[in-house]
Design a protein around this nucleic acid. Sequence first.
DNA 1: ACTTAAACCGACCGCTGGGTCGGTCAGCAT
DNA 2: ATGCTGACCGACCCAGCGGTCGGTTTAAGT
Lengths: 205, 205
Amino acid sequence: MEKHLKSKVTINRLCYKGLDVFAQKGYHNTNLNDILRELCLSKGAFYHHFKSKEDFFVYIVQNLVAQKIYALLVEPLSVQEDPLSAITESLDRALEPGKSNELIYGFMLGDFLTELDGKQEQVSAYLKDILQMWEVNMIEMLKKGKLDGHIARHIDCEGVAAYIISSYLGMRTMMMNHNPKQAKYQYLQQLRHYFNSLRPTAVRA
Amino acid sequence: MEKHLKSKVTINRLCYKGLDVFAQKGYHNTNLNDILRELCLSKGAFYHHFKSKEDFFVYIVQNLVAQKIYALLVEPLSVQEDPLSAITESLDRALEPGKSNELIYGFMLGDFLTELDGKQEQVSAYLKDILQMWEVNMIEMLKKGKLDGHIARHIDCEGVAAYIISSYLGMRTMMMNHNPKQAKYQYLQQLRHYFNSLRPTAVRA
DNA sequence: ACTTAAACCGACCGCTGGGTCGGTCAGCAT
DNA sequence: ATGCTGACCGACCCAGCGGTCGGTTTAAGT
């Protein structure tokens, strides 16, 4: 195989495995040796491609997590006219339990932020950026929805976006005690109730 | 001072400082040496009273966190007839930024659960218990409120409780990027919107 | 074929931090 | 006085893990 390609393949293997392990065990609890052993790679291979564990993590966040969040939670917001429906559907899709290895990307942001806040300011800045990207896009869409008559005029779009994201991030912690499928169903149900309270009274379902 | 009393004092100092540091830096990021140095105590003193770091943490969770959660978030639910008002007020009070050292106890549960899940099953079991105590009490009160006509009959109380707690836990992550006072205000505002959607239509504000 | 450099190996380093252990000292009982 | 016990000290131990570095293999250029 070409060297260039081989390098790419190795980096990819490292990143996907890294994402997997980081998501499962958190940043501090994850050690490189475990990842390397599972991939049959050496310390040298790792430090040939990345200059530190932190660098590695940031690379993963920017290249895998950010893109997934965007594709799953940001981009779908603008394809529909009614922002509340768009949000509901995007979350529905994001919560769909895919193949076994599929990760629920949105959640990880919250987890990592919780773990790295305070310490590791560099890293958490990147995480915050991603969350904020989601938030500002949602606010934008909500405001647009207000103009189009999908949302009552007195509603505070910033507050709504923060509330939606909060509940989404928090659900992870709750889901650990419950059946995921049921939790998803319940969550979306309550989200719909909440959304109904945001609509102009004449349109309320 | 009597020996017995002196021991209690030391344990108390350790626990309160420990709670403080754990809440700020998380479990893994907290090291005993820092705590000990700040209290001018030695390793020996610590391991005379606690058999491990984990033991120490569990002791704190069971003795300080659980009680505070109960007093702040569980007990107040039953003093009022309308559960939705009771919940709003308890969260309002829980989110009130008290004295500088006051901790927002509810949040920590979510943080620790997020950090310790997977690994450290013993510990996270205790944390889950506390969360569940909150949840089942809330469900109970919601069901009672339904009978009393404060909540619409078709509402799924389990789902509502999970949704409330989720949003509460998740708000911590969001609040890190925002002004806490404004975040609290926005949060309660949206909570009220949501609650309005749960009331019987005739009573809806 | 020879050179070069990237990809990779794995032994090693050093720090961090949980945990140990022998010792000291104060207070209390006999 | 004597002995005992519980509170506490702090030097030390050691495992884990991030990071280093000299060496080896392999693919590509000439």
